[in-house]
Computed example of a mutant assay.
Amino acid sequence: MKALVVYESHFGNTGRVARAVAEGLRSGADVEVLDVADAPPLGEVDADLLVIGAPTHVLGLSRPDSRREAMERAGDEEEPRPGIREWLEEAGELTVPVAVYDTRTHESKLPGSAARAVVRRLRQRKVPVVAPPEHFAVHGSEGPLADGEEERATEWGRELLILPGA
């Protein structure tokens, strides 16, 4: 089995979760982990399972303005790159089963979720989503990850291997 984990991360937390999920997946799959800027177009994904991870910005997926603000707070002076939102909008049919996670502020009880926004977009395109969206907690907007979240992400990766359709 081949798995691809594609993520967007600004403060490193969503990337840490991506690597932890990949660690769990490696118990039964060959896994590649890519920042969304380095990911192939959706129509060219060559995997048996795709895992998508995104940080929750302003109740959903990041936008150019929210990415620019995050990059400034992180001290990154590069021009903001496209995120998961733009990657999903690229042309190309995706038939690979997908699982989705996000990172979001632990302290907030706000209802927004990048993962739910991704799932909604995938379902509109008739892409098979094999698990409910998973959420990993971050302290504040910049992190760090809450205690135990990397371990939970590794376990979630293992669980993805046994899901029907994955």
Rank of each mutant, 00 (worst) to 15 (best):
R67K: 06
A99S: 11
L94K: 09
A20S: 13
T103D: 01
D38W: 10
E89S: 14
L34Q: 12
S113Q: 06
A22V: 03
N13Y: 01
R67S: 05
A99Q: 04
D30C: 05
A37P: 00
P64E: 10
A37C: 06
A115T: 09
P111W: 11
T56Y: 03
E93R: 15
T103C: 04
W87S: 10
R116T: 09
A117N: 13
P80V: 12
E69F: 12
F11M: 06
A115G: 13
V51D: 00
S27C: 04
E77V: 13
R104H: 12
L34I: 05
P40R: 12
G75E: 02
G24C: 03
D30S: 14
R123H: 10
G12R: 09
V21W: 00
D65V: 09
D65K: 14
L50P: 01
A20I: 11
H57S: 08
A114C: 10
E78R: 15
E72F: 01
G60Q: 08
E86L: 06
A39W: 00
A37V: 08
D76V: 15
V51G: 02
L42A: 10
D102K: 06
R67I: 05
K109I: 10
D35A: 14
D30T: 13
L59E: 13
A18Q: 02
E107K: 12
E90R: 14
V119M: 04
N13G: 11
V100K: 02
E23A: 15
R68M: 11
V36P: 00
F11V: 07
L59T: 04
G53R: 02
R67D: 02
V119S: 05
L122Q: 04
H57C: 05
G24W: 00
D30R: 13
R73T: 11
R26E: 12
S62I: 05
T95I: 07
H106Q: 14
E107D: 09
D38T: 04
V31L: 11
E72M: 12
E86K: 13
I84G: 00
S108W: 07
V96I: 12
L61D: 01
R19G: 03
T14N: 09
P55R: 07
E89T: 09
T14P: 00
A117F: 02
A22Y: 07
R121G: 02
E89K: 14
A54Y: 01
V17K: 01
A22E: 00
E23R: 15
V58M: 12
E8R: 07
